[in-house]
Every structure is written in structure tokens, then in C-alpha cells.
């Protein structure tokens, strides 16, 4: 009896707490990593004073932000103004419930799964939940009663509208092969296939990656918060802890996007070449570590891209989506469907 109580209640609660904390911890690491890597690209050193190599810098920053005065200026729609930071952060953390952070581990007779929830439509749920964040951006921008946030919010709407479509299409090509929208099944199918989908469907991956960078509002698509144009975009008027929420949400979204890329295209918790017997020693390393290594690579890619490229302009961003990515992804799906049904 007590055994099943532990299995049914306590372990899930612990898992929920861990999964809730995981993105936040990753955010901390990311904030530090971003500042260090961008500094290294620019031949600077970046934060290196607080803790070992400045690793405690994000914690210090967070403490500062939590104690800062939280300004709500006049003319603000208070309800939406307060809801939107929560909405943005919450949506990205919630989506982690369906991401498998690792495989199944046998502890005695108990099978410990490294995911909180398994859903037959997990992929759809993730895309749906993470899209809620755009409401936070719009509400935040609109309710600020200020012009820069408004422009940022407008840009954000257009951006999400344009880039959800190529994301959906590129993910569709995965579903052709996995025959399932269950995230765990998708990883297991990659194991069966013996090759990660990213190498099988490189075009889909490139489209997916470009669109996902655009959806997370990262450079070179960081138009809603383009620093040199819109000051800070939709969160110009936010300060203190609400600003910290937006800030964390941006990084949480990056972690989510990298997780999606890893699970869908790069075999989730699987080691490289999972079926090659000669490399079976790689299975010794737990799946969670493989997953972590892979997402770290993609998070690094985010930063690397940011440090390199100029920013797209609003009209070019939309043109890229509608004139290139969407036709290309449609064509890609057509080819994949054709190959899939005749080969």
C-alpha cells in the first residue's frame, strides 16, 4: 500500500518539482553562459568575479532584480500588466512536463521515468502551450500604455503568426516517420531506426531551427525586443521582478526550443548510434546526461548565432517566412510523403 502511494503520489510530486526547477536552473546557467560566450566572441572576459569564473553572477543578478522597486506607471491596465510576465514564464515551464529529460531507469522493481507526463498528443500540447507565451507578450506590450512596447508586441504577433507554420510543417515530417505524436515514442522510433531524424531529414531540421530561433525572439530575429530600435521592446516598461520573469522566460523558451530540437531531431536521451554494438559502452552514461549535453550544444548555438549575425528587418523577416520557409517546408513534406509512401 505504502509502496503504491509512493509510486503514485510522492514520486510524481518530486518529479514535478524537479521539472519545474530544471528550466530555471538552466536559465541561470544560460545567463552566465551567454554573457561569457558573447564576451569571448568579442575578445572580452565577461563576468568572472562572483564565484568561480563568475558562475554565481546570474544568482546575484536575480537577487538584485527581486529587491528592485517594481514600478507600475500610470495608465497601465493593471490586471494584464501583472498577468503577462507570469503567463510568459509559466507557459514555457509547463511545456517541460511533456519533454522526456531521460529514458527509463530501473531502480529495484520500480521503473523511474524521466518525464512527468506522457501524452499521445504530447508534441501538439508542447507547441500549443508554448504558443500561449505570445499572449503574454501581446498583453504586456499592449497594457504598458507606451509606444515602444506596443510596437514590440505588434511585431511579436506577426512573427509568431509567420513562424508557427514552418515549425508545424517541419515537425509534421517527423510524424511521418514516427507515426506518433508521443514524445517518448518519437525517441524510441529513432532508436529503432538506428539514426537520428536530424540526419535523416536535414532540410526539416534547418527549417525547424530557423523558425524556432525566430519564435524564441532571439537574434537575428529579436525584433520584438530589438535593442537598437525599440529600446527593450515589449518589456520596456517592466522593472524589478516582473522584468526578471520576462528575462527568465526568454531563456526558458530557449531551453525548451533546444529540448524540442534534441528530442525530435537528435534522439533525446539516446547516445550517438544507439544500435551500433561497438558503441554500446556509451549506454553506460545515463540518458539524462546525453540529453543535457545535446541541449547545451543547441543553447550554445543560440548564443553563437547571436554573437555573429546582424538583425533582420521586420519586412524581411516576414518575407523569409512566407516566401522561403513555408514553400520550402511544404515542398519538403511533399517529397517526404512521396518517398515514405513509395519507398
Amino acid at each position: 500500500m505504502s509502496n503504491s502511494l509512493a509510486a503514485d503520489l510522492i514520486i510524481p510530486i518530486i518529479k514535478i518539482i524537479i521539472v519545474g526547477l530544471f528550466p530555471l536552473i538552466m536559465v541561470m546557467v544560460m545567463v552566465w553562459l551567454e554573457r561569457r560566450v558573447v564576451a569571448f566572441i568579442q575578445l572580452r572576459l565577461g563576468p568572472n568575479r562572483v564565484g568561480f569564473q563568475g558562475i554565481l553572477q546570474p544568482i546575484v543578478d536575480a537577487i538584485k532584480l527581486f529587491f528592485k522597486e517594481d514600478i507600475t506607471h500610470t495608465g497601465v491596465d493593471k490586471v494584464l500588466f501583472n498577468i503577462s510576465p507570469v503567463l510568459v514564464l509559466f507557459s514555457s515551464i509547463l511545456a517541460f512536463c511533456f519533454i522526456p529529460l531521460g529514458g527509463t531507469m530501473q531502480i529495484g522493481t520500480y521503473n523511474l521515468n524521466f518525464w512527468v507526463a506522457e501524452s499521445p498528443v504530447g508534441l501538439l500540447l508542447i507547441i500549443g502551450i508554448s504558443s500561449i507565451s505570445v499572449f503574454g507578450v501581446i498583453f504586456g506590450g499592449w497594457s504598458s500604455n507606451s509606444k515602444y512596447p506596443l510596437l514590440g508586441a505588434l511585431r511579436s504577433v506577426v512573427q509568431i503568426l509567420s513562424y508557427e507554420i514552418p515549425v508545424a510543417f517541419s515537425v509534421l515530417s517527423i510524424i511521418f516517420f514516427s507515426q506518433s505524436m508521443n514524445m517518448i515514442d518519437i525517441v524510441n522510433r529513432q532508436k529503432d531506426a538506428g539514426i537520428w531524424y536530424g540526419f535523416m531529414l536535414p532540410v526539416s531540421f534547418v527549417i525547424f531551427w530557423i523558425s524556432v530561433v525566430a519564435e524564441t525572439n532571439r537574434a537575428p530575429f529579436d525584433l520584438p525586443e530589438a535593442e537598437s530600435e525599440l529600446v527593450a521592446g515589449f518589456h520596456t516598461e517592466y522593472s524589478g521582478i516582473k522584468f526578471a520573469y520576462f528575462y527568465m522566460a526568454e531563456y526558458a523558451h530557449m531551453v525548451l526550443a533546444s529540448s524540442l530540437a534534441v528530442v525530435l531531431f537528435f534522439g533525446g536521451w539516446l547516445p550517438p548510434f544507439p544500435n551500433v554494438a561497438a558503441l554500446s559502452f556509451l549506454h553506460v552514461i545515463p540518458g539524462f546526461v546525453w540529453y543535457l549535453l545535446k541541449i547545451m550544444f543547441f543553447l550554445y548555438l543560440f548564443i553563437w548565432i547571436r554573437g555573429t549575425f546582424p538583425r533582420y528587418r521586420f519586412d524581411e523577416l516576414v518575407r523569409l517566412a512566407w516566401k522561403w520557409l513555408i514553400p520550402l517546408s511544404l515542398l519538403n513534406i511533399l517529397v517526404i510523403a512521396f518517398v515514405r509512401s513509395f519507398a
Binding site: 569571448f40 566572441i41 549575425f309
Partner: peptide, 21 residues
């Protein structure tokens, strides 16, 4: 063109830093 740009920034990540502490 984009990959060339990335290679330049990659190279810079591993070159000597100019900051004076």
C-alpha cells in the same frame, strides 16, 4: 555566407582576450 561568419566568431572565441583586469 552565414557559415563563414560563424567560423570567424568561432575563431575569435579561442583567441587571446584583451581585457585588463
Amino acid at each position: 555566407d552565414l557559415l563563414q561568419g560563424l567560423s570567424v566568431t568561432l575563431k575569435y572565441q579561442f583567441t587571446h582576450k584583451v581585457t585588463i583586469q
